[in-house]
């Protein structure tokens, strides 16, 4: 390779690379921190920054998901586009552990399909009850969220008048948010910022 060829190819290649890299940088610095709610990732996901670098955007987790829970960003944002997320209000995760066992990249760490293991390792988010609007705290006995929880009694339990209390064992599957009869939902899964416990 001659020096002239080297410089010409460097100049030619740097135009698309810089366009892509600056788009990614803008997304990382401006768009993602400004998100109204950070995305809830499928079970077993690494911490957000690590997840974004490791995920290869292959969409296999969404295809293997039997419940069609997993959705994908499909906008112009070069970093977020193609990464999986969950909207618990539309469809909660049934914790089948298929997505993280099929993930080829390791962005979703494999977890055994076993109740104890799931309870120990999955932290997709944390359910938070809004007592101002929750029926059980406002004179109507409800308790639907407690019945929907796969770990009822452990992750969420009902006090008097079926008032739900979420413990720190909540895996964040969002089934409670999906079934909540109040509109808007009185129980929401909030993303956890700290690193996933895998």
């Amino acid at each position: 390779m001659t020096k002239r060829q080297f410089l010409k190819s460097l100049a030619a290649a740097s135009i698309p690379v810089l366009a892509l890299a600056s788009g990614s940088w803008y997304s990382l610095k401006r768009i993602i921190p400004g998100l109204k709610r950070p995305p809830i990732r499928p079970p077993g996901a690494l911490a957000e920054a690590e997840f974004l670098s490791k995920c290869i955007r292959c969409r296999r987790c969404g295809q293997v998901c039997p419940n069609e829970t997993i959705k994908y960003y499909d906008g112009l944002d070069p970093v977020m586009a193609g990464t999986p997320y969950i909207v618990p209000r539309e469809k909660g995760c049934i914790l089948c552990m298929k997505c993280n066992n099929t993930c080829p990249s390791g962005a979703l760490q494999p977890i055994a399909d076993d109740g104890e293991e799931v309870l120990k390792h999955v932290r997709m988010g944390m359910a938070v009850v809004d007592r101002n609007i929750c029926n059980s705290f406002n004179g109507y006995v409800c308790g639907v969220c407690v019945f929907a929880c796969p770990y009822d009694g452990l992750a969420i339990y009902a006090e008097a008048w079926e008032q739900p209390v979420v413990t720190d064992k909540c895996v964040g599957c969002g089934l409670c948010e999906q079934v909540c009869i109040h509109y808007p939902q009185a129980i929401r899964v909030m993303p956890i910022e700290e690193e996933a416990v895998v």
């Binding site: 390779m1 060829q5 080297f6 010409k8 190819s9 460097l10 030619a12 290649a13 740097s14 698309p16 690379v17 892509l20 890299a21």
Partner: peptide
């Protein structure tokens, strides 16, 4: 046309 090493350069830079 672009010079031949452009593809490798693009890969390396990216």
């Amino acid at each position: 046309d672009l010079p031949r090493p452009t593809a490798k350069m693009f890969l390396a830079l990216s």
